[in-house]
Amino acid sequence: MEALQRVFGRNTAYLLIGPAAIWLAVFFLFPMLSLLTTSLSDPSGTPITGYTLTWRVQNYIEALGDYWPYMMRSLLYAGIATLMCLVLGYVLAYAIAFKAGRWKTVMLVLVIAPFFTSFLVRTLSWKLILADNGFIVNTLQTLHILGEDGRLLATPFAVIMGLTYNFLPFTILPLYTSLEKIDPKLNEAAADLYASPFQRFTKVVWPLSLPGVVGGTLLTFIPATGDYINASLLGSPNTQMVGNKIQQLFTTAGDYPHASALSVILMVLIVGMVLFYVRRAGTEELL
């Protein structure tokens, strides 16, 4: 590295960072600008001819007016799924960090391994598990938890379950990283001072794991809000999320301006919620 430094002087850093900076500027930041201008363009163009920028703000009003239920549904489903991921993920991350002993690495690998089977293939298999004549539905019907013609597939339950399942590792890994750093001696000290297991958790472990909680819930909530695969494969037309609409507007309807407006609204909502949440949790240094 120092040899490079001598040849290029102080520019080495820029040579190293250059390719990444250019690639992300051209194919990430610049497209965001494109999205913004498309969202303010006249919807009468086509994807082949392009769209003319007419600063048509009505696109936003129309997109929100037509599709706000999808937006709310996305936030609701993703919110519930994130909470469920937090509970399940906390249990597993805690078990790996404090109880797994020498099986720590093995369990950590086992958390990641299922995700090498294609996301879509795994989501499709839930279709089979939750099927109307499947084992789970039959059992629930025998126990009278579900009615005679009650079903799981094509309900909000199936979509939220799918989201929870698919994004669980995104919650587990940051939680584990946070929990693993906690010195077990702190827990022992609390026990010496007569703290009950419950107090030890609420006063010692939980506060120290907050960075992981915030990181994990964000990494789960953000992709879950934009997801439409679970809603498409496991849901029904009544459980469609905002991602379904954006995708349909882009691909089948070819209405880029309204689709872009909806995308921008989603992005703004998410950034807003993330900033608010991070402030409330007092973990700004994460960003």
Binding site: P31, S260, L266
Partner: peptide, 8 residues
């Protein structure tokens, strides 16, 4: 969200 990156 991927949908935003993809659409932009």
């Amino acid at each position: 969200p991927e949908i935003v990156m993809g659409s932009s």
